[in-house]
Design a protein around this nucleic acid. Sequence first.
DNA 1: TTAGAAATGTTATACTATTACAAGATTGTT
DNA 2: AACAATCTTGTAATAGTATAACATTTCTAA
Lengths: 133, 133
Amino acid sequence: MSDNAHVPEKLTKNQSLVMGALEKASGPLSAYTILDELRAEGLRAPLQVYRALEKLVEFGRAHRLESINAFVACRHTDCDGHKAIAFMICEQCGHVREIGDSALAGQLQLLAEQSRFTMKSSIVELRGVCCEC
Amino acid sequence: MSDNAHVPEKLTKNQSLVMGALEKASGPLSAYTILDELRAEGLRAPLQVYRALEKLVEFGRAHRLESINAFVACRHTDCDGHKAIAFMICEQCGHVREIGDSALAGQLQLLAEQSRFTMKSSIVELRGVCCEC
DNA sequence: TTAGAAATGTTATACTATTACAAGATTGTT
DNA sequence: AACAATCTTGTAATAGTATAACATTTCTAA
């Protein structure tokens, strides 16, 4: 929703490690799972992971799933900032699908305006069962 | 979104205590804040609060705000189950506004159907600044 | 080169949530 | 009334998630 901060072309060492772990994963990962996977690469403390995650989310390279305290790599193909992102989280298999939708963004913006609320970002997470399950 | 479970007319002792704390509060409360407030009434352990909260959420009497790990009493006047609930969370003052909207529910249902996703419940939280701030 | 900013390393701690087990209360039957 | 099934409670221990504080290093732009 917001693209204020400048996004560096190159990630730092820890950011790269964490981004790699997220991209390699088939589903969402918790910060501590990431840490465990990266101990072999030298990471030792939660904060190293949390700091990297914070930046990655800021850059739009990763997302945080609030309802499950986990993180995923951004799978967005056409992330133009005019779309709200909705996550569909399968409660059976844990699979997460990320959808960017501009109609949804408009809907949320409308709701916010009706309440004179200045929306900075939106969180949309649908819980249910995916088509595979 | 789901109204399967039957809602008892009377709350149990701990449920009443927790519901009272939520209703008295002007904003969202964390489980541990609720616990601290209710120590005077005899509550001693987090689980007593979490169990009550679980039921209250199930009954639709309270909501959980996923993005801030906190709970609020339901302020819904016309909760008919055909509406999605959106929360607007002010990052300045902490105020939370709850809005039920059927157009939003339709939008989310549409998105889910397009992905052949069976939606059980939805989480919509807008972060920003309220009209007071 | 040097000052400021950003990133890192480390320890400790705070905050959030659940597991496991025992006991008491409620409800609906025989 | 007695019984079983179910729900609620109490308690202790532990698991899981996240940040504060401080020291140090690396990067970057003037």
